[in-house]
Simulated scan of single mutants.
Amino acid sequence: MQVSMISKALSLLSLIGQANQPLTFSELVTQSDLSKSTVHRILGILMDEEMVQCHSRMKCYLLGQRAFDILRQAYGGYDLQSLAVDGMMQLQKDTGHNTSIAVIDGDFAVVLRAFDANKSFGGYNRPGLREPLHVCAAGKALVAHMPPPLFEAKFGNYEFLRRTPQTLTTLDGFRNDLAGVRRRGYATCNREEYEYVFGIAAPIFNFVGEVIAAVNLWNTVDETDMSGLEEHAAKLTTVTQEISRLIGGGAVLRGSW
């Protein structure tokens, strides 16, 4: 079956967008397995539409202004809460635990939307709730993937107030905990926020690999323990990965720090 011109154009556009460094015409021909005439014709169309630009001095090709405009418009138009609702409701139903979605605001994780479990004492999981970043699972998930310079600037003078005997109160202890977040793919709160609450949270990434929100799964000591919550970690990360996918997002691996 002959591959359509649209498919060839999308393939070439993806090749340009995914390249670690700008590609020359010859490199595009080699890596695309398309003929020189086909690559030349497609590049002409993509440049006319401003989806691709040619750097005349370097003689290489990059994504054009219109491609970036489409990304920005799509990302800016998404209602994150609406995209997260189905996954959060299903997560609450499948696990029987409370769920919420939070974003970062200064030194706090702020709940945007929440769904309480059937067995819940109520009040805690309300929208608008603000908790310090270092005491809650959502806060840890929100900051664990920060670039190191940004993390150091934010937490160099941060006050690690003690909420419970389990609260992390030093920068080194916080760093070590966040290394576990990056390794596992989710954060934990082992009675660090309140003595009677366990929680886990996983990040949502945008299209440039930044964490823009976190989904939290939690309950009280009467209903679960840490290991019981972590049994649902795969369900939680499946939800956050799907939300990330819907907004064109994906994690950027930053290594250990």
Rank of each mutant, 00 (worst) to 15 (best):
Q90L: 06
D172N: 02
A214E: 04
T164S: 02
T167S: 06
P127E: 01
V215C: 07
L43T: 15
Q18Y: 03
A114I: 04
K93D: 13
A153H: 11
M47P: 13
L13V: 04
I247L: 14
L15P: 14
D222K: 08
Q31F: 13
G106T: 12
S256I: 09
E210N: 03
A233D: 14
E210L: 12
E195K: 10
V52S: 03
T167M: 02
G156D: 01
F25G: 13
R66H: 13
E223I: 05
P127W: 03
A202D: 06
E50C: 00
K36Y: 15
G44Q: 11
I204C: 14
L129R: 05
A201S: 08
S35N: 15
M51H: 15
R162E: 13
L246C: 06
D79K: 12
M51R: 09
A153K: 11
D107V: 01
K140N: 01
L63S: 07
K36M: 12
N219E: 13
T99R: 05
V239H: 06
K8N: 01
L150W: 05
E27I: 09
G228H: 10
T237H: 06
M51I: 12
V85G: 12
F68N: 14
S56T: 12
E231S: 15
L236P: 00
F115I: 08
M58E: 15
A179T: 15
A179I: 05
A102L: 07
G122R: 12
E50I: 14
S82K: 14
I42T: 13
L168I: 09
S37V: 11
L83N: 06
L133G: 07
N219R: 08
E159R: 01
V3P: 04
E192W: 02
E242C: 01
T188H: 01
G156Q: 00
F25Y: 14
A102D: 10
